[in-house]
Design a protein around this nucleic acid. Sequence first.
DNA 1: TTTCCTCATTAACCTATGTGTTTGAATTCC
DNA 2: GGAATTCAAACACATAGGTTAATGAGGAAA
Lengths: 240, 240
Amino acid sequence: MTKPLIRKLEQSDVLSDEEKAVLERSFTRIRDFKADEDIVREGDRPTESCIIVEGFAARYKLLPSGRRQISAIHISGDFVDLHSFLLKTMDHGVVTLSPSRVAFVPHAVLNTISEQHPHLTRLLWLSTLIDAAIHRQWLTTMGRSSAVAQMAHLLCELHVRLNAVGLTNGMSFHFPITQEELGDALGLSTVHVNRVLTELKAGRLVQWAGGGAVTILDWDRLRDIAEFSPTYLSLQNEPR
Amino acid sequence: MTKPLIRKLEQSDVLSDEEKAVLERSFTRIRDFKADEDIVREGDRPTESCIIVEGFAARYKLLPSGRRQISAIHISGDFVDLHSFLLKTMDHGVVTLSPSRVAFVPHAVLNTISEQHPHLTRLLWLSTLIDAAIHRQWLTTMGRSSAVAQMAHLLCELHVRLNAVGLTNGMSFHFPITQEELGDALGLSTVHVNRVLTELKAGRLVQWAGGGAVTILDWDRLRDIAEFSPTYLSLQNEPR
DNA sequence: TTTCCTCATTAACCTATGTGTTTGAATTCC
DNA sequence: GGAATTCAAACACATAGGTTAATGAGGAAA
């Protein structure tokens, strides 16, 4: 059940057999969630962290005014709330976007890893740094791009990330999200999300069938509209 | 010269004398920068990381279209590009906002710390997690708040962060930033930054004298407008 | 089947924010 | 001390995106 995580960490650097074994035996608990269920909530002080084994999840914040902002979308293999290991108190919630399988590792075990396996620790640290790099990219597109460019960027990013864990089929991938959730991720209203998607479909840039079957029809043009460049995802394998 | 950093790390947990000593002797190089000078650029592969000893700096990204987004503002004591230690290639640049003193630590030294001082390593890791938490908060206000609320939020955040390192004088603090830079940080045009500031001044919420002397005149109202709550800054001291 | 839901779609209207431009004050440069 | 820049401030106008509301389509529940 740690396969997707190991696969993801191995994108950044080589893992020794021992490190893999340590990870394998760290995740003791597993649980299935339905769609739209909270894994952790803002304010919680979890004693475990979790990875998404299968499915999609989102981190979100609620404003007192009731509005919601999704700050990250997570896919299979993502170490969703590794943060809580050191932040202790959750500054945001994590919710499933689709039915998902989630595996948990106690903070005490993470602490032991940090004491005994410095290299593995650096790779876990790195995975949180990549999350932060994605945050910065989202900030940039939110602040300085049009809604269409933003949407295009999200689709490019997802294709690259899903592709890296083998979850694409050519230019197609499964992305089960509602337009309201997309709006929460991009900082847009549902109405405008719909307008933007209509425009992308009309331009024959993407195809979005029911049930979340996304196909990118014209990668080059989509990438140009999005001003997308994947360097921020740190997909390069090198010693860390 | 690591005083501000130690002070900052001590907000989160207790540092042993040995850990402090390790930090003290890690920073070998120091350099002064003028205002508006790049410390590192996007695409660089630095061999050292740096802290701001004194002054203000910002992380930024440039879009191919030439627009700029500032994704973080850093103050005295902030470990600005600790990220490059593991990310290797900079996904963004760091520029000074004011004349600043910057101290450098070689990545090789950070590596040794990560091998020999797990607790100190966790605190450094934590400092990058707090940066990420700030990114998430910015995403939330950018996506779901008005320009006025966003500006109010930034000022609240800065007051709390500067206060935590002793750089406030009551409700006043020094914040040398141009309206153009503010726009880049908030994703707004300079014209609109000016409108928003005019509004905040007119409402007697803040006072902003020349040279960057900011005074928050009505904290409660400003906090309410911003929907500001400081939990995401993790200012609680506890074992990590 | 019928009845709810949830979600996508579309229309009409509105406003927050962007763009382009000008002016004047303050700094910095020679 | 004058010239050149930078920055704040303001105005007029344009538009991207928000809001409200209505309708339909598909699935789930009963």
